[in-house]
Amino acid sequence: MGVFPGFGGWINQNIQEPLKTTSKRSKNGKSSSVSEEDRYIQGPWYWDPDLTPKEKAESLEIDHVRSMPLLATDPKYYDLDELVRQNNLWNSEYKKHPWNDAPAKVKVKTKNGICHLNIDFTLGSPPQAVFELFTDPRNMGSFHSMGKYKNNWRTRLDTLATKVLKKDGPRQITEVEKVLRWKILGYNGTIPIHLIIDENHQKVTATYKKVKVMHMKVFEGSWKIEPLYVDQKRLCKSRSPISEEEYKKCSGSKGRIGSKVTMEHIFQPSSLLNVPPVSWFIRGIAVKVTKALLQDLREHVITMNKMKTVDPLVYAKVVEEVKKKIEAEKESELKELEY
């Protein structure tokens, strides 16, 4: 059974054509075409309800969703104030009671040419915040690596385009185009990835399946995020399972909530490539890149926890700086290719 039972027919009727550019309205009211680079701005987006009219007006002056304090997940289905409180709690407790996320555990099993990755890991951030990281298509810098020099940024996973196909309460079905960069044993390259993602903003779960992924016959998976009461033993003196309400009460509202993430990724190289030793090489790349992406997430969350406050406007400025560094490196690489 696929990851989208009963959903295949509807998808086939709605994604026969690739994502197309749309138009946006400029400040003078005239319509202008959206470049290939800007296709991902398609919604829906959700404003932080706590923004003042002045902050919202200042944000609109940015004129680009990449740097606006917008949410990719619908705050209607979770307590945004509690999420902000938890984020700030992680910041304030970082030095007093450090929490070290262990590297992800990745189990690899291959059967009948199909590779199954079962992944478990924890992050020092609440489930809704982690879900936002997973689903935000604005290339927020979560998946980057640093080169030899501090100004040498490499974005490992870029979102090129998104299109929301269906919105039904907390459920959102999105068509996504990404590009993945890989490097292994001296070889490097890029892999275009075109997916359909079925998200649930309330349950913080998602499934995905390929529309088209280069060299892949099968490419699908799922993830779920569960709360992890990291201070339960210290503040509640108990190891038995408790609810979020009980945890908040016994910890005096001082208990941090982290995330336990369980992922399953299934892939199978196309028929011509699913033969040793080529299939071994492809599987090796897939597993190594997956581990690298998970490590990027881990380091990103640790960096965010070091910040003294979590202010959307401040975060947007940080993101814009990252974007400029990435764009500068891309321009530099293009100039080198010209020579």
Rank of each mutant, 00 (worst) to 15 (best):
D198S: 02
F281C: 12
H116D: 13
E321F: 12
L165M: 04
W153D: 09
M146Y: 14
S332I: 08
S92W: 00
T21S: 05
H300L: 14
I285L: 09
T205W: 08
E220L: 01
I62F: 04
T159Y: 07
S31W: 06
S222E: 08
E17G: 01
D296L: 14
L71Y: 14
C236H: 10
G141W: 03
G258H: 10
V275P: 01
F121W: 02
D198T: 01
S279T: 12
Q172A: 02
A104P: 01
N12M: 05
P241Y: 05
V213P: 02
V287R: 08
E36G: 05
T22C: 05
K27V: 11
V319I: 06
N274L: 05
S33C: 07
P241M: 07
I197F: 10
K249I: 04
S31D: 10
E177L: 06
I242N: 03
K209D: 04
I184L: 14
L334V: 14
L80K: 00
V318G: 09
H194I: 01
W90I: 09
V84D: 04
T21R: 04
L157P: 06
Y187M: 15
D296N: 15
V164Q: 08
F121M: 10
G255R: 02
K20H: 00
K163V: 06
G6Y: 07
C250A: 10
I285F: 11
I326N: 02
D120M: 10
R298P: 09
E338L: 11
I173S: 06
K150A: 15
Q86V: 09
P98A: 06
I196C: 03
S238E: 09
N12L: 06
I41T: 04
K148Q: 12
R156M: 15
L71A: 08
L185H: 03
Y149W: 15
G6Q: 02
L185Q: 07
D79P: 12
M140A: 03
P126G: 04
K224P: 00
A72C: 13
S253Y: 07
D50E: 12
D120H: 15
M214Y: 14
S240V: 14
L337N: 13
L71M: 13
E175G: 02
K107A: 12
D101S: 15
K166W: 05
A206F: 09
Y94F: 10
K24Q: 10
I119N: 01
N151S: 14
A104L: 02
V218K: 06
E93A: 07
K96Y: 06
D296G: 13
L297Y: 12
K335R: 11
K224Q: 13
S35W: 01
